[in-house]
Amino acid sequence: MDKFESFQGVAAPMPLVNIDTDMIIPKQFLKTIKRSGLGVNLFAEMRYDDDGNEIADFVLNQPAYRGAEILVAGDNFGCGSSREHAPWAIKDFGIKCVIAPSFADIFFNNCFKNGILPIALPQEQVDILMRDAERGSNARITVNLENQVLTTSEGETISFEVDPFRKHCLLEGLDDIGLTMERAPAIDAFEAQAAQARPWV
């Protein structure tokens, strides 16, 4: 996984609440056996009409937001299915950071596994960033994970929380499996003990 570096980017506003994983990546695109190439299908049913033409007023089709690297959204973003195709599509489109008042649990976890930073902030702060995002491509928001600070295009700073372990993994681009493999002796010991305590498992 690539290391997560600080960046300044265009933020796309999506003020809708309960944006679910079926919206983010509709099921017809889950039939792939690969992780790549899903960016073109991100938000497909909101983004394209029945004939596959772009719907002009959808935010990511507007010239200002075609290169968005940040998404600012409403409450409970990513609710629904566990499909990791949702963060794969977001990442493949080029979005590296999603900001919302709250996230669904599985989607939130999946983001970190794919080098995406999900940031939960109080509604008032999301509102500030949403207004900034609505100003288009001239308003670029800065994401600094190291210092845990967002800076609006007007220089206003908003600090955010992130789990220290996940922050470390994002910054270093660490692979979870490799880290856990280092704990193999502890897993072996657990299995031996569990085989005694609960042999029916």
């Binding site: 992780r35 299915s81 566990s82 499909r83 990791e84 963060p87 599985i106 976890n109 999946n110 596994k113 794919n114 789990d163 372990f165 979870d176 499996i177 856990t180 493999m181 704990r183 193999a184 897993i187 299995e191």
Partner: peptide
């Protein structure tokens, strides 16, 4: 019992564990 993403599926296949809080 709970749902996990594909990266976690791979993690469980490889290690029979899951990183959780």
């Amino acid at each position: 019992a709970h749902g996990i993403g594909t990266s976690e599926v791979e993690h469980v296949l490889a290690t029979q564990t899951l990183i959780q809080s």
